[in-house]
């Protein structure tokens, strides 16, 4: 006998099947994240509470906060501060360059727009390391600037191995990460709102400040995060262009896992940075949602 079609809860079975299908679709990514993100993160977390033996081996035999205590060392503070500044300036410079450019792209007609976007992405087609080494030549004393100054009879001018070189390298490397979210935000902007502002007696600049800028804030925040976070912990660029003179966070952490043989310290530093970023993000999200 067939069940009556009006039985309460009839739709439950179909909904459960729907949920199962959804879960299966997400499963590969889910497994990947657990294996390659959650598990390593857990190992780093545990290691940060481990102990470094006199010989540099990592001992998991007791719960130790000594790595965290070591973070209070003024040297660590200096390194964090220096990295913070480099990342802040990199983000600011990227924003300054990227906003007008993203605005330009977003206001072109579609064909031009797509061509410009491809241009932004072209650097991704070649290896990051190779591109950074190219900068090493450009900024070095054999590079164009060096040759020119030498031809003028002066000491060959060299930017390589200075903080400025790191900055140039970081801005170069991360600029597309600023351009793309900004472009997306500006492209989504309802231009009638800008017209409305102009109609209500705002001049072009004021309309930009009062309407365009606040309404593309999501792009500014996303882009800034995408640039700031990797700049803060950057390793490759400072290592190649900075000459390892002024130590930055990335190199310092790598050193702890390598030569210094102090994995707990490297782990603890990584955990703290991650926690700080997370808290900053949460504060930003909470205040950002209420404001404007």
């Amino acid at each position: 006998m067939r069940k009556p079609a009006f039985e309460p809860g009839l739709e439950k079975a179909a909904e459960a099947a729907e949920r199962r299908r959804g879960f299966l679709l997400g499963l590969p990514a889910y497994v990947y994240l657990v294996v390659f993100f959650a598990v390593p993160f857990f190992i780093v977390f545990v290691t940060s509470f481990a102990r470094r033996s006199a010989t540099g081996a990592t001992k998991y035999d007791e719960f130790s906060t000594s790595a965290y205590v070591k973070l209070l060392d003024p040297l660590v503070g200096t390194i964090v501060w220096r990295s913070f500044w480099i990342a802040t300036i990199t983000t600011a410079v990227c924003l300054l360059f990227a906003y007008p450019f993203a605005y330009y792209i977003a206001t072109r007609r579609p064909a031009v727009r797509n061509a410009l976007l491809v241009l932004v992405m072209i650097p991704f087609w070649s290896n990051f390391l190779v591109r950074t080494y190219a900068w090493r030549f450009i900024l070095g004393s054999d590079g164009p600037l060096g040759t020119l100054t030498e031809a003028m009879g002066r000491e060959p001018f060299r930017l390589l191995f200075t903080p400025a070189a790191i900055l140039i390298g970081l801005v170069y490397g991360f600029l597309p990460f600023m351009v793309l979210p900004l472009y997306a935000a500006i492209e989504r902007l309802d231009w009638r709102l800008v017209e409305a502002a102009r109609d209500l007696y705002a001049d072009g600049w004021t309309a930009f400040r009062k309407v365009t800028l606040p309404l593309t804030r999501s792009g500014i925040i996303a882009g800034s995060l995408l640039v700031f976070v990797p700049s803060f912990g950057a390793y490759v660029t400072p290592a190649i262009l900075g000459g390892g003179k002024d130590l930055l966070l990335g190199s310092y952490i790598v050193t702890q896992f390598g030569q210094a043989r102090n994995r707990p310290l490297g782990s603890a530093l990584s955990i703290v940075i991650m926690a700080v970023m997370l808290v900053a993000l949460m504060i930003r999200n909470r205040s950002g949602a209420e404001e404007i």
């Binding site: 309802d190 709102l193 502002a197 109609d199 705002a202 309404l215």
Partner: peptide
Amino acid sequence: PDARPINTVFQSYALFPHMNVERNVGF
């Protein structure tokens, strides 16, 4: 537009989504 003694009511209203009613009207 800002030099003309004219105001517009837009088809889509074009209210500023990031401002409340009072600030929209006072803009």
